[in-house]
Design a protein around this nucleic acid. Structure first.
Length: 823
RNA sequence: GCGAGCGUGGCGGAACUGGUAGACGCGCCAGCCUUAGGAGCUGGUGAGGCAACUCGUCCGGGUUCGAGUCCCGGCGCUCGCACCA
């Protein structure tokens, strides 16, 4: 049986077999021995920080998606190295978090045992892939020396007033007796036991990311990031321009509670026929009339029992009347105040003015409860008195009606005028509201960095002093969360009880750990200083290497991770700790690898194990194939069939190089081959920075076809540049062949092949000749031919001339491209 | 529902700012070499037609000398978000 990993020598040449496994093992060992991928960060010239999103080390091992991402990143990094940069390509593991903990619970192995095992496996797989990573600065977020500084970051935010504690709702499974993340709730029930999930209020730590919303939004404008990612962030931050309007509660006596609502449609205020508060709104108790109290209380309890998902997916309108009314500041009318779960406490002010005539949700609610519906906006030609069958949502042509002195005004102008009018009596102000919420970083779990806070009976909340960091994660045998909703850390008595750092009296530790997203929000700062014990990140190295030059990662992190990393960086910038506001100068999202048209998943049984492929085809062929199968930023379909083509290409590179070196280097390279070579150098050199890897590979294949045309043996000068260009994609074979060609050191030190535009130009071109826009032939002409000359030449071709009857009406000439004769 | 992206041979995909559609690769066909070939080499390969030629980039319009590319209207697929006032 033939072994696909070896290539028999061509009958006419003495060529050793190409055995990828041997070549790859040899060069991986050499790179390690020479510490080839560990640059001198302090002294290296032209620094280039090539960052990839670090993986979560799952038990299943390296996923094809990881490898796809890392290879694309590695190619870009190796290319920068060829271009003369000192390239830093670090690696780490995002190993804390619920994901890891749940898996550990499932298989019954303590996470502190399981995670190092997974990391070792990842390390082995990454190593075999031939990535140019600096192994000397590898880190894991679970390292004591790492999470010490994660806690330090928390303290920086705490000291700047950006970390605070408040009660907030979490999903609670009454059967599993545990807090669930939103992803663990499926259709309102616990994903494991199918019990309906409830809400529970818990004290949790938050970061004030909303304070930074305007800046996070504004900086997006000028950043060199994938457009899709910037749009996703913009939508996530979700700025809405509108007004805050105050409604006075009309009570029978001296109650003066005001209700503040947010609206993007102040122009419709004359149509606000009732108010709605979220069931959790703090004013509900105060305004509810005694006769409505029972009903309101029942509704609130019902809403509290509901899980967040169900509440947000059900469109049915429910609610309860509080018995109170408020004064519409525009009309002076008393309008009823309701509570309903379609109003969310987390957004705006947790209260709305309902305009059923022009909002679908308000319309549905008004219909359900028989509340008045008024038209206050009408398009041209619509009778202002016409009844509304459904909410009539604004059109740009619409004007305001039934709105007193504002009647007839276009909607856009009415917005401004009405706000200004209400503002004069203090009833309204223009505001921008964001849908972004403060970042809840508390996790009532075990596997994470303990939040460095101590609670003292006399001193209150006390941050752990820096000198006492890290607050070590103690070993707890049973890490399962219990029915208290409190982290398992609380059960570790010795750890839990602590002396107050301020007064020395009895105190207790915060038992929540922080969100994994905090670990990953600053890891890029740590990498260059990964070996430093005394600082989170060294000032000089940070100034030299950051911000990150090129960041590549998946779009699944387009929002949370990238936003949190930007936020933390901005805070550190404001604290004077880093010199830049934005951490990633350039970000590109890679696409997703699918298989047979479907996303890879264990349940579908279409998961590709990289180990098998690397074993069978070699890392070089596998890497190159991954890059060849589609546009990097769009992903592609992984089919086993295609890899053979890439393997053949590498086989040919191998045999051509050996054939070339077997000959004495007499004679000179072929002119046509050299022209194609220089065109290829230009093309590949343009494609790699654009991450257009598939077309770069195609261009090199094209050159290979030209190189091997005919019976001739290629010249070393025709082969050497190709070996250099291949190096980012297939680094092992490139090193081997570079050595064979007599190159010194690493192929990466040989630089990018010199491009000579003069050698790349053709002096003859094939000019397309069209008649009335239809192609009728091509003529070979000098590049500098004029329109008249081209026309004359074209007319000599019978196959073209026969379509041209009489004098042409018009002739269009695009130099070097085409001639279009219009008759 | 809202937002983003996509739709090109048997398949993965090329085609930069409108200018020879199908590069490159897989597969397939033929030939060579071989005891043999799931190896290698050479040539061919969008559809129809002997040919001249005609038709072809999801569908329908439009702009243009010229449209895969731009504009309008549909259909379909993928991914986010989802009662956000």
């Amino acid at each position: 049986m033939a072994d696909p990993t070896t290539t028999p020598a061509r009958p006419d040449a003495e060529v050793p077999d190409y055995v990828p496994a041997t070549v790859e093992a040899k060069w991986q060992a050499r790179w390690d021995a020479r510490r080839a991928n560990s640059p001198d960060l302090a002294r290296g010239e032209k620094p280039f920080y090539q960052l990839m999103m670090f993986p979560y080390p799952s038990a299943e091992g390296l996923h094809i998606g990881n490898l796809y991402a890392f290879t694309g990143n590695d190619i870009h990094g190796r290319f920068q190295r060829l271009r003369g940069h000192t390239v830093f390509e670090p690696i780490g593991y995002d190993a804390f978090g619920i994901h890891s903990e749940n898996y550990a619970l499932k298989v019954g192995v303590h996470p502190s045992e399981l995670i190092p095992r997974n990391i070792a496996n990842f390390r082995r797989q990454l190593h075999r892939a031939g990535l140019m990573v600096d192994w000397s600065r590898e880190l894991s977020t679970t390292d004591r020396s790492y999470y010490k500084w994660t806690q330090w970051i928390f303290l920086q935010l705490y000291h700047r007033g950006l970390a605070y504690k408040k009660r907030a709702a979490v999903n609670w499974c009454p059967s599993c007796k545990t807090v669930l993340a939103n992803e663990q709730v499926e259709g309102g029930v616990c994903e494991r036991c199918k019990t309906p999930v409830e809400q529970r209020q818990l004290e949790q730590w938050f970061f004030r990311i909303t304070d930074y919303a305007p800046r996070l939004l504004k900086n997006l404008e000028k950043m060199d990031w994938s457009e899709t990612t910037r749009t996703a962030q913009r939508n996530w931050i979700g700025a809405s321009e509108g007004a805050r309007v105050t409604f006075r509660v009309s009570d029978d006596g001296d109650r003066t509670d005001d209700i503040s609502v947010f609206t993007t449609r102040p122009d419709t205020i004359f149509g606000a026929t009732y108010l709605v508060l979220a069931p959790e709104h703090p004013l509900v108790d105060a305004i509810t009339r005694p006769e409505q109290r029972a009903e309101v209380q029942a509704y609130r309890e019902r809403a509290a029992r509901q899980d967040l998902i169900t509440r947000k997916t059900s469109k049915e309108k429910t609610g309860a009347f509080t018995g109170a009314t408020a004064i519409n500041p525009a009309t002076g009318a008393a309008i009823p105040i309701w509570i309903a779960d379609y109003v969310l406490m987390e957004y705006g002010t947790g209260a709305i003015m309902a305009v059923p005539g022009h909002d679908e949700r308000d319309f549905d609610f008004a219909r359900e409860f028989g509340l008045p519906i008024v038209r206050v906006v009408a398009s041209e030609g619509v009778d202002p008195g016409a009844p509304l069958e459904a909410a009539d949502v604004e059109t740009t042509a619409a004007r305001v009606v039934n709105s007193g002195e504002f009647d007839g005004m276009p909607v856009a102008r009415a917005k401004e005028r009405i706000v200004a009018w209400l503002a004069s009596s203090g009833a309204a102000e223009s505001v921008t509201t964001y849908r972004l919420h403060d970042w809840c970083i508390s996790r009532q779990r075990y596997w994470g960095p303990p939040i460095p806070i101590i609670y003292c009976e006399s001193c209150g909340t006390v941050p752990v002093p820096e000198k006492d960091l890290p607050v070590e994660l103690p070993y707890v045998e049973d890490v399962r969360p219990d029915d208290s909703g409190i982290s398992p850390l609380a059960r570790h008595e010795e750890w839990y009880h602590v002396a107050c750092p301020q007064c020395g009296k009895r105190a207790r530790r915060e038992t929540d750990v922080s969100d994994t997203f905090l670990d990953s929000a600053w890891y890029f700062l740590r990498y260059p200083s990964a070996d430093r014990e005394d600082v989170a990140f060294d000032a000089a190295l940070t100034r030299k290497w950051l911000p990150v030059n090129s960041y590549i990662g998946g779009n699944e992190h387009a929002v949370l991770h990238l936003l949190y990393a930007r936020f933390v960086t901005m805070v550190l910038h404001d604290a004077g700790l880093v010199h830049f506001e934005e951490p990633f100068t350039r970000f590109r999202a890679h696409g997703l690898i699918i298989r047979e048209g479907a996303k890879m998943s264990k349940s579908k049984g279409n998961v590709v194990n990289p180990d098998e492929y690397i074993e069978r085809w070699g890392a070089d062929a596998f890497r190159t194939y991954l890059m060849f199968l589609g546009p990097y930023e769009e992903g592609g379909d992984f089919r086993d069939a295609g890899i053979i083509g890439v393997k053949r290409f590498l086989d040919k590179l191998w045999s051509s190089t050996h054939a070339a070196t077997a000959q004495p280097a007499s004679g000179s390279p072929d002119v046509d081959v050299m022209r194609k070579l220089h065109q290829t150098i230009r093309k590949v050199g343009e494609d790699i920075p654009r991450l257009s890897y598939n077309t770069a590979v195609a261009a090199m294949m094209e050159y290979m076809n030209v190189l091997r045309r005919g019976e001739r043996t290629p010249h070393v000068d025709e082969v050497r540049p190709l070996v250099q260009m291949v190096a980012p994609f297939a680094p092992h074979i490139a090193e081997e062949l570079w050595e064979k060609l007599g190159g010194r050191g690493s192929v990466l030190d040989g630089g990018w092949p010199a491009f000579d535009p003069a050698l790349a130009t053709e002096d003859e071109v094939a000019l397309a000749v069209q008649v009335n826009g239809k192609l009728r032939g091509t003529i070979r002409v000098s590049k500098t031919i004029t329109q008249d000359e081209a026309f004359a030449l074209a007319m000599q071709e019978p196959n073209i001339a026969k379509f041209v009857t009489g004098t042409p009406k018009k002739v269009i000439f695009v130099a070097g491209r085409l001639l279009n004769i219009v008759v």
